[in-house]
């Protein structure tokens, strides 16, 4: 029998009732799967951990997967590289003193003190209760102040008309957009993002997605046991995206 993940979630209520009496099942695991009518809460804090030691120079499968998932098609667009959306990009970093080189993906760092949210005049930039930083493109007026404020160049202004959007990723001219941490997948309970999935498929496993608030999760355990850093720690923005090896 094959039951999809979504059907599984629809069973949420029954499952919880069952779990309460069934031995051997911990409630905490079930709490992770949100039913569609539930609002997200601060019980979760989604994050990414990127191990740059495992990230290959020249490999762009995370970028490609992001583009496929979110309907970003650079071929379709008329502008230059600098006007096309860049939700995630590969950055090559070289230490001029030692010659050490490494490669890493940079996307929205989902700061818990996000400068983009502070400056947005309409409140279109916002942080969801579970820590994901998003643009409500229904009230974005396209002023681009958030892009001026972002220390990571993580946001893109949609410079031209788009067609063929994905059902789950509406996008359009004149508003600002950025990595959503695949919020539609997260809400569905996929437990991963397109980039993390693609990286794992390549066998690199450099991107780990998970709930930083859940002490049992792999990401929480890794950040507890290994030295991780965030880009521009000096700004103290409490990013949810962490890196190993930068």
């Amino acid at each position: 029998m094959s039951v999809s993940r979504r059907d599984f979630m629809a069973m949420g209520a029954a499952a919880t009732a069952g779990a309460a009496i069934a031995p051997g099942i911990r409630l905490i695991e079930l709490a992770q799967a949100k039913s569609p009518e539930e609002a997200v809460t601060a019980a979760q804090r989604w994050g990414l951990l990127i191990d740059t030691n495992k990230c290959n120079k020249g490999c762009t499968s995370c970028v490609d997967a992001c583009h496929t998932e979110n309907g970003i098609d650079h071929e379709q667009l008329k502008g230059s590289d600098a006007t096309k959306p860049q939700w995630i990009r590969k950055v090559e970093v070289k230490d001029p003193n030692t010659g050490y080189e490494h490669s890493l993906p940079v996307m929205c760092q989902h700061c818990q003190e996000p400068p983009c949210v502070d400056v947005c005049p309409t409140g279109a930039s916002f942080k969801r209760a579970d820590g994901i930083v998003l643009v409500d493109r229904h009230i974005c007026i396209g002023c681009r102040y958030c892009m001026m404020a972002c220390p990571y160049k993580a946001r893109s202004f949609e410079h031209e008309d788009i067609t063929g959007q994905k059902e789950y990723a509406p996008r359009g001219k004149g508003t600002v957009e950025s990595c959503t941490m695949c919020v539609h997948k997260v809400d569905r309970g996929d437990g991963t993002t397109a980039c993390a999935e693609a990286c794992a498929k390549e066998g690199h496993n450099a991107i780990l997605f998970g709930d930083l608030n859940d002490p049992k999760s792999e990401i929480a355990q890794t950040v507890r046991s290994k030295a991780t850093r965030r880009i521009r720690e000096d700004l103290n923005l409490d990013n949810s995206v962490r890196y190993i090896g930068i």
Binding site: R89, K90, E92, P96
Partner: peptide, 16 residues
């Protein structure tokens, strides 16, 4: 350019 990695040389498809 925005300085994300002070003291490092950086490059990318997006003009880092």
């Amino acid at each position: 350019p925005l300085v994300m990695f002070p003291g490092m040389e950086v490059s990318s498809s997006f003009l880092d």
